[in-house]
Design a protein around this nucleic acid. Structure first.
Lengths: 218, 218, 218, 218
DNA sequence: TATGAATGAGTATTCATTCAT
DNA sequence: GATGAATGAATACTCATTCAT
């Protein structure tokens, strides 16, 4: 009873979820965050193979063994980190959000263009490059990336393109048959910026818009 | 053509020099070829970091130390191999080859489309993916790739697009300002086929053609 | 008997001392028991080197740090556990217990054989194997084992054998000179059952009896 | 032809078996021997778990990686070493070697006693202790030990004991039913010498003989 | 007293590279 | 030139132990 009273007085919310006497929960969360963030940075800078657990730990400001408390292996750490990043980077252009009477081209310009303009700044492009760079050795990443990000987006675009064709916005079936042409410039930009020419990055948003202009006639 | 002449000029000289010293120049050349070819395969299959010199040697049918007689380090081997492959994979759409009166769209369909249709079969796509995958860790590869392949092609396309615009084949300046839109689908195809969906490869040639149709109106 | 009296004397004192400070002496004793028992099980299953403190704690249902409140190091835990087990596994064939006129062979059959028949079931054989397996690395165990168990028993047997020889029960001095021959079958059984053939365990009691029959003629 | 002549002049026997130009075969054999011998010593001194590959290499006078050229893992090294030792330590008391008219007891005294007298000196006892100590964690060792050494010997003894009983050398069936009683003193000696009392080793040969005297009456 | 997050020394293993033959 | 045995730096991972709560 005394213990119960104590608990109630101390920190009711936390105590209900967590075991009593457990060392600080916040610290744990902080540590985890530090590790994940350090790991992402290392993986982005050096790639999976060249990133060392030692460097991750050092960068996170923890001891060599600490990351292993959160992820059993280097691969698990990699997968965990990427999985988490992917989950937080989904792009949504659901047709349901189209305003009444809004043309598909206009809708894409309103919803997708802004997202593409910040894709590099938000680290999404870097994430895509990581998946792209390590995907051959880690098919799981591809799987997750496709399931969470890529396939949903492409399907939404496919539907939008079909509507556009039906509504007379498109002159031919080319885009209906190859909806990938809508996102090809984005991938080109991602590849260009991270690999082909890091010194003169392309504005992916602008490239996407220019492509829109060409595909969706006025 | 210039390159071809140079090559033809070089080889005989070397053979004359070598023959004097040893009777096995051909064997040496063969060994080198075997090593380079084995190395390329290993790098493509496993990536630079995971490919082992041991495996390269075994695949080439030579001893562990032999590759070191041709390339001083693993990095040098990698660079040498990729450099050589890139050199042999140049795409040429020189405007000078345009037939009199031939439209730019038609010219591209005649010259570039066929090359794109076999880009996957000839290993060029795989090569591009390798450069793309290892480029961050090996900026030299990027340099070579750009100098030998990428920049020349993009410049040729830039010129062609400008001509097309001048000749009234294009309605806007969008493509003149963003000639990358012409090759974006190719890169998308390369990425798609090797990474996003290996089970359902895209026909890069068809994708390129569809894009041409959309950009160059009839 | 002396030992028993001592034990009875010790416990109450401690309890009186502890009760004054904290209300949970029993809980503490329980915890200690759980740890010791879990540790013994782990050490028996995996050996000292492969047993982990983590597994001991988990098996005992306590936190990772708790065993350290009772034993300062893993070695101390090991030693403590084995010491305690050995103390509780003493075999007694004191010559003073011989019935008047009882032959030595008959006395051993009456007192020692029953103990040998359950040596495997009671975990004594397993304990002996543990001492045997870890003894090289932990000479202390050997020391304790010899002092508490082995030397006393062998001395008692030595005396009994001498009496038997004097009383005409033995035809030669062979057993007087090598009293170890009496216990050799027991050790063989212990080794056989735990190591050489775990699937077909020998009945150590029967083996001991058969040996008795051969050494003590009727 | 020149090469062939050279070979014939150099070391014909070896060259026939080995590939030309291969680095010294003798050195390889030497290295292997050094590693195996160092490994055996380390395993005997510290046990499998506490022996480090580093120490093995250092003791063998080779680099850390060299043992791995001969044994892929520490376990394989251990198994290989023990396997080899076991193979070279077989005891043979084949009944076929009995002289005509020779009694079983005499035969065993003639053939087995001498072997038992040197069992400690030749390292066989140490080997048995190693198998015994690590057998629980490495059942393969037990398997090999039984197949190569133990079972054959016990079977030969079983047959001899049966003959002895038939030929009137034994008064009861006790030994026929428990042939293990013949080797129990040996195992006791092995355990005693290596574990219970390293300072006062027993003469295993003498112990075996004394036991023989008691079991095989004159 | 008990907890369990954090620590970091210690170890097996890999593999690019060297060099005697 | 070619060989392949040997090298040793580098690295993922384990686990006894500590200590703030």
């Amino acid at each position: 009873m005394a213990a119960g009273a104590q608990r109630r007085g101390d920190a009711p919310q936390k105590e209900l979820r967590q075991r009593a006497r457990s060392p600080s929960v916040e610290k744990t969360t902080q540590t985890r965050r530090a590790i994940v963030s350090a790991a992402l940075a290392e993986f982005l800078e050096r790639g999976f193979a060249c990133a060392t657990m030692d460097a991750v730990a050092r960068r996170a400001g923890v001891a060599k063994g600490t990351p292993y408390r959160y992820f059993p292996t280097k691969e698990a750490l990699f997968e965990g980190v990427v999985r988490q990043e992917i989950a937080g980077a989904v792009v949504d252009v659901n047709a349901a959000n189209r305003a009444p009477g809004e043309k598909v081209g206009a809708f894409l310009r309103r919803t997708m263009s802004p997202a593409m303009q910040v894709v590099e700044r938000q680290g999404r492009a870097a994430l895509a490059r990581l998946v792209l760079t390590e995907g051959v050795r880690f098919p799981v990443l591809i799987e997750i990336y496709r399931r969470e990000m890529f396939d949903p987006l492409l399907n939404q675009l496919r539907n939008l393109v079909r509507s556009a064709r039906e509504e007379g916005e498109l002159k031919s079936d080319a885009l209906v048959d190859n909806p990938e042409l809508l996102i090809a410039p984005i991938w080109y930009g991602i590849v260009h910026n991270g690999l082909l020419d890091r010194s003169q990055p392309l504005d992916i948003g602008a490239l996407f818009d220019a492509n829109l202009d060409l595909l969706f006639e006025e």
